[in-house]
């Protein structure tokens, strides 16, 4: 452990005071706190560090978020940290800016999408939902729903049928999102996971509807 910390001192300038929440600035070697974007003394840009996406964008950890506040926080951070602001600086500052902007983009992309946000939130709370939703694959309602709609879609070439399926899918997606909000509010993680799985199926179905429609449009 100690030797690793020493190694880091050479690599990134991290000292032995990490346990106090302080790290030395790479530029002036002075102390900064985890979460600082710029060194309080010399104003050098700092590395993004490990923070959860909500924290990074200054939001409460919750499923229901204020989208306008999310955008505001995102734009505000990018204004200060984006590589365009550091185009003529040293290679190290440019690299840090790219890392910061990358972290902010990742946080923003995750939080702005209801499915990704829910997935991330249960993950933060220690639950892992598999990509294909394996942990809920036994849910017969979800399976039936998805299969029926898929079959229906495959069998029809009538635009009005496709429109109806698209509408049904969209309605189900919205129901799912309302359900997720309630589940997270009530602390029902299992319920949230089940809805995440359902939403994954519905999103795929929506993609298929879109592809199907494009095919019909061309034909």
């Amino acid at each position: 452990m100690q030797s690793q910390v020493d190694n880091k001192q050479v690599d990134s300038g991290a000292g032995s005071n990490q346990s106090q929440g302080f790290l030395p600035c790479w530029s002036c070697r002075g102390p900064f706190q985890v979460g600082d974007l710029f060194c309080p003394t010399c104003e050098a840009m700092l590395p993004p560090g490990q923070r959860n996406h909500f924290d990074r964008l200054g939001l409460e950890v919750a499923y229901d978020i204020d989208m306008a506040a999310l955008d505001r926080a995102y734009f505000d951070l990018q204004r200060r940290l984006h590589p365009d602001r550091f185009a003529t600086r040293t290679p190290r500052e440019r690299a840090l800016s790219q890392q910061q902007a990358t972290s902010i983009n990742e946080a923003y992309e995750t939080l702005k999408d209801s499915l990704k946000r829910a997935d991330y939130l249960v993950h933060l709370k220690g639950v892992k939902v598999f990509t294909e939703g394996c942990n809920q694959i036994n849910d017969p309602v979800i399976l039936m729903e998805a299969m029926e709609l898929r079959e229906e879609l495959a069998e029809t070439d009538a635009p009005e049928d496709v429109d109806r399926i698209a509408k049904a899918t969209q309605d189900d997606i919205e129901d799912c999102e309302i359900g997720m909000s309630l589940a997270f509010k009530g602390g029902d993680l299992e319920g949230a996971c089940s809805l995440i799985t359902r939403l994954k199926f519905l999103r795929k179905l929506a993609d298929e509807v879109r592809a199907h429609r494009a095919k019909l449009g061309k034909a």
């Binding site: 600035c25 530029s27 002036c28 070697r29 002075g30 060194c39 003394t41 010399c42 104003e43 050098a44 600086r89 040293t90 500052e93």
Partner: peptide, 9 residues
């Protein structure tokens, strides 16, 4: 840049 940082410190 190094000089400037140290001056701030």
């Amino acid at each position: 840049r190094n000089l400037k940082a140290l001056q701030s410190a």
